[in-house]
Design a protein around this nucleic acid. Structure first.
Length: 600
RNA sequence: GGUCCGGUAGUUCAGUUGGUUAGAAUGCUGCCCUGUCACGGCAGAGGUCGCGGGUUCGAGUCCCGUCCGGACCGCCA
């Protein structure tokens, strides 16, 4: 039996007879002496085998290779002063091996598992994912999974202390008409019918409020069949929260308390509460994003006025069409050279997708600011007015992006992030201060160009602000919602709202969204029915657990905090999913597949 | 659906203007080595240059297509 782990022996254990089990991390064979660093989840311990101590154990140790699983019996010995390894927590001792049993041999691993040498840990991510069980032996990933475990514990304890009930909702539910694409599950018992995996348990948790559960929480898997990003996986985990009679302030307060507990437990850090708040409108106008990274300055400035009447056709037509000209003042870059500016222009057109980049510069030795568009096209007075309106000073650079709103805000916001990276203003993952922010006063709806209709910005159950209700029919785009997002360091880590709890209001919302009464009845009839029977006001929020852990861990990808993540093409290389299935299985499910050619 | 980056030894990478037998480090194998800790020393094995096609006297290198991985845009109520 194992008496200790590989991370716990110290000088105080000197003389004890111990049994350790684990993996061979590294092996140093000096000829007449073999050192093994033995690894388990808890750490590394040096074992030394010599023929004097035990001939058999020594001979076995000579045969050991990386990742063999062994059991060692031995005596804890204090190391001599010059032999102490201060880099190892167990570095003051070693175990003198009296017996060594190989429990299982390992093939030579496809990459070096030991992370004792940082320069050897780099293996391609697809290889690491294919051999995820080896990758997961490494302390960095184990540490992330441990953080995740502690996140669960703190979160459950916090909500339990606040009288929340954790309730499981179905994973097999039904498809909803809007939002992300659903993952569908064919029904064997009902040919042609499908379950859908939940994009979130939104309607179920609202029903639980109608049921009088009062306070609900669930740590729950959600599924969205959309393209992946470094911070987006098709299956992800939410901390899903809903409260009866909730107001915005109660949700803010609750979440700030949770964050404080999490930061205390996981990062041993105190965070300042309450968190600052910013309206959606201000976020878009000053940061060009609904999840602004406020860890650095670089604020946008609307300089449309300065160019009104300037005669420059590109700008004038945008102004006349209610578009905006957004300025990003960049301090100290007034002397940035032509080739660097050309590269920046390429970035703006190719990556950000704006029509072009116009800029105003005033170098340290320049009398006046000058624009890369000639003064024939834009009179100098407008150039100077814009430079001043942007808040720029001699020595600065002002970047201009023009276009229709809200696109131009987002493009300017992308440019802001690009410049921040360029200037080294944005802290690396895991570094710098954590800046929480509530973004509030979201629009209820946004215009969907593709379908030429309004779509919910949050979801169709979000309550409009009472004072905006009268505009819902004639100017839906101007209606604000009782919705809020929690933002951390430029990442959206949660979003929620006060919900509609009134049947008529909900029906009216479906109507505004172009969902006719029949479809509303088919898709959401259960909710509309439930609202007939005394549905209390309620609201809540859902946190992106994976993203939060990614930020807490200082990782730059969700793949670092998920045990078995999917690649950007939504595959899981270890088990090789998704995969084909037997024809018989498909038949049982009443499914026929078509090839791409037939499909097209 | 699109833009960009990458794919060369088990692994991480280098590879000049298209030119002889494709290199390094590490890992692996063998031998030596009793205080190492990324042990060290010596020797050795190890390659479908992702795949297919094209240009060329000649392709790792140029062109086209395709697959895989990554970052991003679209998408993500």
């Amino acid at each position: 039996m194992r008496t200790h782990t590989c991370g716990e022996l110290r000088a105080e254990h000197k003389g004890e007879s111990v049994v350790l089990k684990g993996w061979v991390d590294t092996r140093r064979d000096l000829g007449g002496l073999v050192f093994i660093d033995l690894r388990d989840r808890y750490g590394l311990t040096q074992i030394v085998f010599s023929p004097q101590a035990n001939e058999d154990a020594y001979e076995t140790a000579q045969q050991l290779r990386s990742e063999d699983v062994i059991s060692v019996r031995g005596t804890v010995a204090a190391r001599k002063d010059q032999a102490v390894n201060p880099a190892m927590p167990t570095g003051t001792i070693e175990v003198q091996g009296d017996a060594c049993a190989v429990l299982n041999v390992s093939d030579t691993p496809p990459f070096v598992v030991s992370t004792q040498d940082e320069s050897r840990v780099d293996a391609n991510e697809d290889l690491r994912l294919k051999y995820r069980y080896l990758d997961l032996r490494r302390p960095a990933l184990q540490r992330n999974l441990e953080l995740r475990h502690r996140f669960y514990q703190t979160t459950r304890r916090f909500f339990d202390q606040h009288d929340f009930l954790e309730v499981e909702t179905p994973v097999l539910m039904k498809s909803t008409p809007e939002g992300a694409r659903d993952f569908l599950v064919p029904s064997r018992l009902h040919p042609g019918h499908f379950y859908a995996l939940p994009q979130s348990p939104q309607t179920y948790k609202q029903i639980l409020m109608v049921s009088g559960l009062d306070r609900y929480v669930q740590i729950v898997k959600c599924f969205r069949d959309e393209d992946l990003r470094a911070d987006r996986q098709p299956e992800f985990t939410q901390v899903d929260v809903e409260m009866t009679f909730a107001t915005e302030e109660q949700v803010y307060d609750l979440m700030e308390g949770l964050m404080a507990d999490l930061w205390a437990d996981l990062k041993d850090t105190e965070i300042d509460t309450p968190f600052p708040r910013m309206t959606y409108d201000e976020a878009m106008r000053t940061y060009g994003s609904d999840k602004p990274d406020v860890r650095f300055d670089l604020k946008l400035q609307d300089v449309s006025d300065a160019f009104d009447g300037c005669g420059f056709r590109v700008f004038q037509s945008i102004i006349d069409d209610d578009g905006r000209i957004m300025a990003l003042p960049v301090p100290g870059e007034g002397d940035r050279g032509r080739s660097a500016m050309d590269r920046l222009t390429d970035y703006v057109t190719d990556t950000i997708g704006a029509a072009g980049l116009i800029y105003i510069q005033q170098g340290e030795d320049d009398e006046v600011p000058s624009c890369n568009v000639s003064t024939n096209a834009i009179p100098q007075e407008h150039v100077e007015a814009a430079f001043e309106q942007a808040g720029a000073e001699p020595g600065d650079l002002v970047l201009l992006v023009a276009g229709p709103t809200p696109t131009v805000y987002e493009q300017a916001g992308q440019l802001r992030l690009h410049m921040a990276d360029d200037l080294g203003l944005r802290p690396e993952p895991g570094e710098g201060p954590d800046r929480f922010l509530w973004v509030t006063d979201f629009p209820l709806l946004e215009w969907d160009d593709e379908h030429e209709r309004y779509a919910p910005m949050h979801h169709p159950f979000t309550a409009p602000k009472d004072e905006h209700l009268d505009r819902l029919d004639d100017d839906p785009g101007a209606v604000e919602a009782r919705a809020y997002d929690l933002v951390l360091n430029g990442h959206e880590i949660g979003g929620g709202s006060i919900r509609i709890h009134n049947r008529e209001m909900q029906a009216r919302m479906f109507d505004v969204l172009g969902i006719d009464a029949e479809e509303a009845e088919q898709r959401f009839g259960f909710l509309l029915d439930a609202f007939r029977y005394g549905a209390p006001p309620h609201g809540g929020i859902a946190l992106g657990l994976d993203r939060l852990i990614m930020l807490i861990a200082g990782a730059s990808s969700l793949r670092e905090v998920i045990a078995f993540p999917k690649t950007q093409s939504a595959k899981e290389p270890m088990v090789n999913s998704p995969d084909t299935v037997d024809a018989e299985q498909l038949e049982t499910l009443h499914i026929d597949t078509v090839s791409d050619e037939e499909d097209a």
